[in-house]
């Protein structure tokens, strides 16, 4: 195994132990990922029954249930929080210690990210099951949609992680820009389809949402796994779009990281 992979495995194990220690705390974070989609399901279900046709953007109550149940799972898998933390790491100088290690600090953060997702499974899986049992979702995916959906979920989580990290690097230039995390969150809600399917947004927001990468992180895998919404061609194009954005973000990361580190040595100590 090469160095980054060994470091990743070590950080993963270490953070697994940390998260087990703080399982109460981790539980409270992960509950939010269940509450928010559940509230939104209740809201859209009421909105659908209040509309004349009972269907909004092609979703009726049972398919809204499927959409938001799937969004809970996708949201969990794609969770990334570097954009909230980097400002603190730079401001406090904690970044310095991480930079002394012979691998990128990113590997430590990826290890923590994966450990969080594994540890919280034992809380969120029962909550998903209870939610599914209450709302009776209507799933109708073909086998290829399940396969493509799982691949899209993995790609989406890599995308979300990288985008959050790239946006977080603004901290090298403006360490007190805490609003950045909120901007990332708001964009993932509206442009990512976590608040509503993008087709349900007002017409003047739809083109903006479609041009941004957020829909490929959240809505695309969700739609595939709910099933019956995307054609084969749309699916292939979606996967290509995910890979394209990944490429763009990897390049952006390399360029910004190099430039940012130069700033960092100048700023803090």
């Amino acid at each position: 195994m090469n160095l980054p992979m060994r470091a990743l495995a070590a950080h993963f194990r270490a953070h697994l132990a940390v998260m087990m220690q703080y399982r109460g705390e981790v539980l409270l974070w992960s509950v939010w990922g269940v509450i928010s989609p559940a509230v939104l399901y209740a809201m859209w279900s009421a909105a659908a029954s209040g509309s004349s046709s009972g269907v909004i953007a092609g979703y009726d109550q049972a398919s809204f249930a499927a959409y938001f149940l799937m969004m809970m799972i996708v949201g969990h898998v794609t969770a990334a929080w570097d954009v909230y933390e980097m400002g603190y790491l730079v401001r406090s100088g904690s970044m310095s210690a991480q930079l002394l290690k012979p691998v990128l600090p990113m590997w430590q953060s990826i290890g923590a990210n994966m450990a969080y997702k594994v540890v919280t499974l034992m809380f969120v899986v029962p909550m998903w099951a209870i939610f599914a049992w209450i709302v009776k979702p209507k799933f109708q995916p073909e086998w290829w949609e399940v396969a493509a959906g799982l691949a899209a979920m993995v790609l989406g989580s890599a995308l979300a992680y990288l985008l959050s990290y790239v946006m977080a690097m603004a901290a090298f230039w403006a360490p007190k820009l805490d609003a950045l995390g909120e901007a990332f969150f708001a964009l993932s809600m509206f442009a990512g389809g976590r608040f509503a399917p993008i087709e349900a947004l007002p017409w003047y927001v739809v083109p903006v949402a479609k041009a941004l990468p957020f829909r490929w992180m959240y809505e695309f895998p969700t739609e595939l796994l709910v099933g019956g919404r995307l054609s084969g061609a749309e699916t292939v194009w979606g996967l290509i779009a995910q890979l394209g954005w990944l490429g763009v973000l990897v390049v952006a990361f390399r360029v910004l990281w190099r430039a940012g580190l130069k700033r960092y040595t100048a700023v803090s100590g």
Partner: peptide, 26 residues
């Protein structure tokens, strides 16, 4: 600016809901 951003987000949510339906549980 952040305060206005929050308010804007919440108004966008309302606009989204009511571009699809007349009433939300009355």
């Amino acid at each position: 600016f952040v305060s206005l951003g929050h308010l804007f987000g919440e108004l966008l949510a309302v606009a989204t809901v009511f571009s699809n339906t007349e009433s939300l549980a009355g």
